[in-house]
Nucleic acid binder design. Structure first.
Length: 876
RNA sequence: GUUGGUGUAGCUCAGUCGGUUAGAGUACCUGCUUGACAUGCAGGGGGUCGGUGGUUCGAAUCCACUCAUCAACACCA
């Protein structure tokens, strides 16, 4: 690639798209079945094609991209398989909205075929938008393998699983009380019902007893359902009502005779202790009805209007009917009391309308045996949650699971592979539409009208995308996948179902780890929601700050599984860091020629060894954090190294050599600077792929792509050099501190005298003090340092002659502060060492360390006392 | 109601196995047109680690209780 000069300022627009195109063109994201390498696989949680990606996706995708890029550099055959989800109900709602808006037509005005044509158009449009967004974000997916939950392969897998489970008796069709959304016009699974607190009321209604003056008071929150009452239940041992058991009550407004039955389910403490039983519209009543063989009267149409069973009320919407019925009860003297009452009511997770329990003929998956598989697999450690606490949500859901209602009365989705003979009514479940009836041989056959729950196909995603049910090389090689990255809100929708599906169909858990990402909240910590309109479009952030800044902001300063806040200040900080790296790189690369800069181990100076030592520790730390999925920690580690060690100390210390006429010295320094920069780019690449690749392309003699480079090895450590450098850093910092306190301008260079056991050693590094502490001459102190201001370190005293600038009072205050610090340390150390418990029980090594520290602080204290005495004399 | 999370500097958050003087970023204050970067550099102030009690030689860290806050699940005639 052509080497061009780096722009003066960091401007991500100049290169992000170009870099992405370069990767695509070279096939850098592609993964192949390769027996020479170990696979590392992630399947992308397929975004719904309902719209565009939000910050949550950006976080989720960034985490996966970091892991994939890291593993790719580590030498794995890294496959990140992308795709999108048809999101049956959610998408259907949106498409119908659009048709209504644009054409004024409702679902009733459309044929299924017309609808599906529009739906596929929608898919093309929004699927494309999503893919484009993912590319802007830098996702390194193997796009050749992109999939869609309703494509041919995924559909084949869906039919295969359905038929197999049906043949085993694990899928059945039956009439049950299910969750019905009257707005969406379909059944829903239990997981799709969200309980929301609503302000409601308790209506107490008086039911007359047949052939008696007695009355039974019953409290209900849903008076309209009385139209479907078929019994009154009381507790068998309830002395208040014992005498009524076996008698009949008369249903107000309707006049139906209701048997008064006894059932243990009734709670004597609740309400009045008597319960109206409406088997068709309440799950508990449904069970009571089954136990007592009660009639079940459905009073609602699919649109939740009162049906013909409701007599006068027929045709009314359920809420209007409630109002009307309450009015009539009041008028006719049946209404005893109305009390405000807050309670939680199931709502549709898509349209947020109240769910109606409704008896209907649906398809179900029997869950017991497969739930057991999923529980055992996690129990055995075949799949682990990161962080592990989320296993509780998983276990809890599976332990309380009920059969899964999978049929939906929708058009957008996989049509159920059940076929009915119109002649004899026989039902056939098969992979393809039968040409004739198996039973009567008739040829009039139609397919079930319903489609499957969208999660039925999502459940197969880890293997349907790899070619299953065909025996593909990809299945052998890439399955099971390594890690699934997802939010905690879909553990039971998705993780649970992928687990039992993988275990049941393939016999192996679909992934080893489930990494849970937190939720991205707004700056105030609120959930992002449409009603608050507090979301931020990731593309807008990329437009303004660059994709690297967005990615980095989402990751840095976060810990696994906890929520994060989206704050523009954090994006700015990330962008500033990118800018810092850009400038440091430009500074170095601008001085290099297109040739190699080997490092001569023999010629390394103190700072070189120190930075190499720090680098190897950083590499080690980043790697350790990444292996533990602590992405935020890994990112912060690199920042700390780049900014504080490399830029603020090492580059500053290198300048002298860089401006030197001595070419060996200059090139030696350039070699180290370059080597460290290269590894910085590698360590940072998973987090900030664009800027690092762009800089990499400017390195001398560069031919390869950073994305395909080999992750750095952990290098040598130089503990002695680190220790000495630490002392120099402390000395330099203290000098800066002193000069700042004394208001000495940087332009005024000062002299420094050294004293103490380490003076000679430190003397050799006068250039460091010159470069970083505005200090001109470093020399060993003579006996008398006169008025010079002292800085006392362990083993090293520095004296700064401040001449006319000295302010004895200020100086006294400064030393007194130092003394107080030292004395509080002495107190702390003594406290420990005077404690026989500590001496006796703490590790000997620790006691020794404490002892050494105390001694050094005592020496400092003594010295400080001396200096303070001198100052005092001068003040007086 | 059940379960879980969180509580550390003004704000956002780290803090590993209990053992350095509890850290970072940001905000704030002071100084700096030093040759990569003012999207920067140097320096500074700011913390009873929610509270109480306990275990321990030693607790931000472990245990109990408690307060605050968030979430998931469940139930309510």
């Amino acid at each position: 690639m052509e080497k061009h000069i780096m722009d003066k300022t960091y401007d991500p627009h100049q290169f992000e798209d170009r870099i992405y195109a370069m990767w695509m063109e070279s096939g850098d994201f592609n993964a192949e079945v390769n027996p020479d390498k170990k696979p590392f696989t992630i399947v992308l949680p397929p975004p719904n094609i309902t719209g565009s990606l939000h910050e949550g996706h950006a976080l989720n995708h960034t985490m996966q991209d970091i892991l994939i890029r890291y593993k790719r550099m580590k030498g794995f055959e890294a496959l990140w398989l992308p795709g999108t989800d048809h999101a049956s109900i959610a998408t259907e709602v949106k498409i119908l909205d659009k048709i209504r808006r644009e054409e004024g037509r409702n679902k009733e005005d459309l044929t299924r075929e017309e609808f599906l044509e529009k739906a596929w158009q929608w898919k093309e449009e929004y699927g494309g938008t999503i893919v484009n967004q993912m590319k802007k974000l830098g996702n390194s997916c193997d796009w050749r393998r992109e999939r869609f939950t309703m494509d041919e392969g995924c559909s084949k897998a869906v039919v295969e699983v359905f038929v197999k489970l049906f043949n085993e008796g694990l899928i059945y069709r039956g009439t049950r009380l299910i969750n019905w959304c009257s707005d969406c016009g379909t059944s829903l699974s239990d997981a799709e019902v969200e309980h929301e607190d609503v302000q409601g009321a308790f209506y107490s209604i008086s039911y007359p007893i047949e052939g008696s003056q007695e009355k039974l008071i019953i409290a209900t929150t849903r008076p309209e359902t009385m139209l479907g009452d078929t019994a009154i239940a009381v507790h068998p041992q309830d002395s208040r009502y014992e005498n009524l058991i076996g008698k009949y009550a008369l249903l107000p407004l309707v006049g139906r005779r209701l048997p008064i039955i006894a059932d243990e389910y009734v709670d004597r403490e609740l309400g009045t202790g008597a319960l109206k039983v409406t088997p068709a519209h309440d799950p508990n009543d449904y069970e009571i009805g089954k136990r007592h063989n009660l009639e079940s009267i459905n009073i609602f149409t699919p649109k939740a209007l009162i049906n013909e069973e409701g007599g006068n009320y027929a045709g009314l919407d359920r809420f209007l009917a409630r109002k009307k019925i309450v009015e009539d009860l009041k008028e006719q003297g049946y209404l005893v009391e109305v009390k405000n009452h807050n309670h939680s009511v199931g709502h549709c997770y898509r349209c947020h309308q109240p769910i109606e329990p409704r008896e209907s003929l649906q398809w179900f998956v029997q869950m017991d045996s497969m739930a057991k598989l999923a529980l055992e697999s996690v129990e055995k450690g075949e799949m682990e949650f990161v962080p592990e606490r989320f296993v509780k949500i998983y276990d809890h859901w599976l332990e309380n699971i009920k059969d899964w209602c999978i049929s939906r009365q929708l058009w957008w989705g996989h049509r159920i592979p059940a076929y009915y003979c119109e002649d004899c009514g026989e039902m056939m479940v098969s992979r393809e539409m039968p040409l004739s009836c198996e039973k009567c041989g008739g040829g009039h056959i139609h397919q079930d009208e319903d489609v499957l729950d969208t999660w039925f196909s999502s459940a197969l995603w880890p293997f349907s995308t790899l070619g299953w049910p065909d025996a593909t090389p990809e299945m052998d090689y890439f399955y099971p996948t390594d890690v699934l990255v997802t939010g905690y809100d879909i553990i039971f929708f998705w993780v649970v179902r992928m687990m039992f599906s993988g275990l049941k169909q393939i016999g192996v858990a679909p992934f080893h780890h489930t990494l849970i990402n937190g939720i991205v909240r707004d700056a105030r910590g609120r959930k992002i929601s449409k009603s608050l309109n507090n979301g931020t479009d990731p593309l807008e952030i990329i437009e303004e700050y660059g994709a690297d800044a967005l990615r980095f902001m989402l990751i840095s300063g976060t810990s696994v599984g906890s929520d994060t806040r989206f704050m523009i200040e954090k994006v700015e900080a990330a962008r500033n860091f990118a800018n810092k790296l850009w400038n440091a790189s430009r500074f170095l690369l601008g001085s290099l020629e297109d040739k190699s800069y080997p490092i001569d181990e023999q010629a390394l100076d103190l700072a070189d060894k120190w930075i190499l030592s720090k680098l190897s520790q950083t590499t080690q730390g980043v790697e350790k954090s990444l292996e533990r999925y602590e992405l935020g920690q890994a990112a912060d580690r690199v920042v700390d190294f780049v900014w504080n060690d490399y830029c603020d100390w090492f580059i500053e210390l290198s300048k002298e050599a860089l401006y030197s006429e001595n070419m060996d010295k200059k090139e030696g320094k350039q070699g180290v600077l370059l080597f460290v920069l290269e590894e910085i780019l590698q360590l940072l690449h998973p987090f900030m792929p664009f800027i690092t690749e762009e800089i990499w392309q400017h390195l001398p003699q560069r031919k390869s792509h950073l994305i395909k480079s080999t992750w750095p090895q952990v290098g040598s450590n130089y503990p002695q050099e680190e220790e000495l450098m630490g002392l120099l850093q402390e000395a330099i910092t203290r000098i800066r501190n002193l000069r700042a306190e004394m208001d000495i301008p940087p332009s005024k260079k000062g002299r420094v005298f050294l004293q103490g056991p380490r003076a000679q050693e430190v003397l050799a590094y006068g250039s460091y003090f010159k470069a970083l502490a505005s200090s001109e001459e470093l020399s060993i102190a003579r006996e008398d340092v006169g008025d010079a201001s002292p800085i006392l370190l362990d083993g090293l005293s520095l004296y700064l002659p401040l001449d006319e600038l000295i302010d004895h009072e200020k100086e006294f205050q400064r030393l007194k502060k130092d003394l107080e610090k030292v004395q509080s340390e002495i107190k702390r150390g003594r406290g420990k060492l005077d404690n026989p418990g500590f001496i006796g029980k703490a590790p000997a090594e620790l006691v020794e360390k404490e002892e050494e520290k105390l001694q050094s602080f005592l020496r400092l204290e003594e010295e400080l006392h001396g200096k303070i005495k001198l100052i005092k004399e001068k003040i007086q």
